[in-house]
Design a protein around this nucleic acid. Structure first.
Length: 274
DNA sequence: AGGTCGACCTGGCAGC
DNA sequence: TGCTGCCAGGTCGACC
């Protein structure tokens, strides 16, 4: 899915567009995206509600509602929003699962090809297990080197796997884990507790730098990802290793390697990363 | 406690 | 042209 930078882009786009707008009509095309709720129930709850503040936590989008409730969205691998005028029926994407008609005459579609994503309608955010268990936000001030250093030293799992563990740190997924480790010159199979102080410091700096740059670029579009206007993210151009097996390392010109860790592809340079 | 693996889904693409 | 198998920005729960 969309990782932190892509979800941040989605949240920022929604924040520009939907606060203050009221839901006039809801159409559910596939109720499998609704968490613990039938289409009828969801429609009844959402109709007449006005959207409030929008924010991101980890890879989730939190939308406040004027009735004190929340819409929480986990887009997982292929979920995304489309905002704009109504599409004619035969132009509507087969990926469109839920459509909200808004009080300004515009439409907000939730699309999701693989149906892994979820829309939660909840009374309180602590009803969402994901939100109560995920780790620190890497772009917030409480993501300090001291704390990171202290926690990383207690973990024995390979560093790539650990970076993707949302309980350890929120928001990093498969693309940025590879990119961050390349920038840090750390081998993805290194056990977390074997990293020295210098490496941990480089890793901490790279996490913040890469994620910030990717947010500035409105994310990465390898395949499916699009923003709510249908545009691709621009960080693709700055990808150094992800998806580039057998291509040259930008630094040493050796071929990029692909391995599988925890059932996910990892890309790295065996020469530059140790 | 912490790690690994299958399950949840659809669709694009390479190879035969 | 099929067909098969592999691959895909994620997370949860069952198992060791």
């Amino acid at each position: 899915m969309p990782e932190l930078p892509e979800v941040e882009t989605m949240a920022r786009d929604l924040r520009e567009k939907i606060p203050g707008l009221t839901v006039e009509q809801v159409r559910v095309f596939d109720a499998r995206v609704l968490k613990d709720m039938t289409a009828a129930h969801f429609t009844r709850r959402m109709k007449g509600v006005t959207f409030g503040a929008v924010r991101r936590r980890g890879k989730g989008i939190i939308i406040e509602l004027d009735n004190g409730r929340f819409l929480f969205v986990q887009v997982k691998m292929t979920g995304y929003f489309v905002y704009g005028p109504q599409l004619r029926v035969n132009q509507e994407s087969s990926e469109t699962k839920v459509v909200f008609r808004l009080s300004n005459g515009q439409y907000l579609n939730y699309n999701d090809q693989r149906l892994f994503g979820w829309l939660y309608y909840v009374d309180r955010l602590d009803e969402v297990p994901y939100l109560t268990t995920i780790g620190p936000e890497p772009l917030e001030s409480d993501f300090t080197l001291d704390d990171f250093f202290e926690r990383i030293g207690r973990r024995v799992s390979p560093i790539k796997t650990l970076l993707m563990d949302q309980h350890f740190i929120a928001g990093i997924g498969n693309i940025y884990a590879s990119e961050i480790l390349y920038a840090s010159r750390i081998h993805p199979q290194r056990r977390a507790n074997t990293l020295n102080q210098k490496q941990i410091s480089r890793l901490h700096r790279s996490i913040v730098k890469i994620l910030n740059e990717a947010v500035e670029s409105r994310g990465t579009s390898m395949r499916n990802y699009r923003d709510s206007s249908g545009q691709k993210g621009n960080f693709m151009r700055r990808i150094k290793v992800y998806g580039r097996k057998d291509r040259q390392c930008p630094s040493c010109k050796q071929p990029i390697q692909r391995i599988v860790q925890a059932q996910r592809s990892t890309f790295f340079c065996n020469h530059c990363q140790e």
